[in-house]
């Protein structure tokens, strides 16, 4: 065929492989995960996620520099996420609506559901993609810092235990934050409104938590103040981390002792269940529309 002539070969049947639902699920996870970082989308939609990734990495870079130059450990692994919670919140608000809103707004959903993809497949793939996106955002800087610590060869043993605890906690953060953010975002097909709803939820939760904890602390009721901290999803997960891995609490007041740890874990599970149930209800309705 070196003549360079284009032949119209007519319609060809597809005789190749037809893979199952698992393939479609994986493809949808990858597609959504790439989309969460603006990959495969316009150049403009890459700006925000990449800016946030860079901002998340800045403390890690600073920490490595301090370790290399001053031989001092500055930022811990266990409190990295709570320290950076505004950045994480912006990422959740900016990117979670992208995963769910366009398919609802532009009515792409029926095209998925007229294929072997089911509603649970679709919702599951979106949740898995968002969990992976949040995990990449928060686990990358923690891991970069740890690799830095190993390379710099600090005096004393490396903080491997704290790092591994923080990594496990990152998974809990990712699951909780992804389920909540997607559930909130899925309730409006408009992306702008979704962004506002998600950010409002986290600001409200952390604001209410800070105010109430402050009030009870000033009344010298530090036990109640500790419970109030758990209204903030970030401190809720941190309380679980303190309980499970014995890390230093990141909050201004100590978390409630005794039943506090198990209750925080139950709280995390409750939020995740609520988020998933809300998503299931939302999509059951959307699918029959």
């Amino acid at each position: 065929m070196s003549t360079g002539v284009i032949h119209d070969i007519g319609y060809r049947r597809y005789e190749g492989a037809r893979l199952g639902r698992r393939h479609a699920f994986t493809a949808l996870v990858v597609h959504s995960l790439r989309g969460a970082f603006g990959l495969g989308r316009t150049a403009r939609s890459k700006i925000v996620p990449f800016l946030l990734v860079i901002v998340m990495l800045l403390p890690a870079v600073v920490a490595i520099a301090v370790m290399a130059l001053a031989q001092q450990r500055s930022i811990g692994y266990s409190n990295y996420v709570t320290l950076m919670q505004p950045v994480v919140m912006i990422f959740l608000a900016a990117q979670s609506p992208y995963l769910v809103a366009p398919d609802l707004r532009f009515r792409v959903l029926p095209l998925y559901l007229s294929r072997p993809v089911t509603v649970p497949d679709y919702v599951g793939a979106k949740v898995v993609a968002m969990i992976a996106a949040v995990l990449l955002l928060i686990a990358t800087p923690i891991t970069v810092t740890f690799v830095g610590e190993l390379l710099v060869n600090m005096p004393g043993p490396p903080r491997t235990g704290e790092y591994l605890g923080a990594l496990a906690t990152s998974v809990i953060y990712a699951v909780l934050l992804a389920a909540l953010s997607l559930a909130i975002a899925s309730f409006t097909p408009r992306r702008g409104l979704g962004v506002a709803s998600v950010i409002a939820f986290y600001l409200l939760a952390s604001g209410v938590s800070t105010v109430l904890a402050g009030v009870f602390a000033s009344l010298t009721d530090r036990a109640t103040a500790g419970w109030m901290l758990l209204i903030n999803p970030f401190f809720l997960v941190d309380a679980v981390q303190v309980w499970l891995f014995g890390s230093e609490p990141a909050a201004p007041f100590p978390y409630p002792g005794g039943a506090g740890g198990p209750v925080a874990l139950l709280g995390v599970l409750g939020w995740v269940a609520l988020g998933l149930l809300a998503l299931a209800a939302r999509y059951r309705k959307a699918a029959s529309a």
């Binding site: 037809r18 495969g40 989308r41 095209l111």
Partner: peptide, 19 residues
Amino acid sequence: PPDVSATEFVVHMAQMSGL
């Protein structure tokens, strides 16, 4: 969806059908 090209969209939908 308005912000993807026809090629990308149709490739994605083909994968959703199991290709």
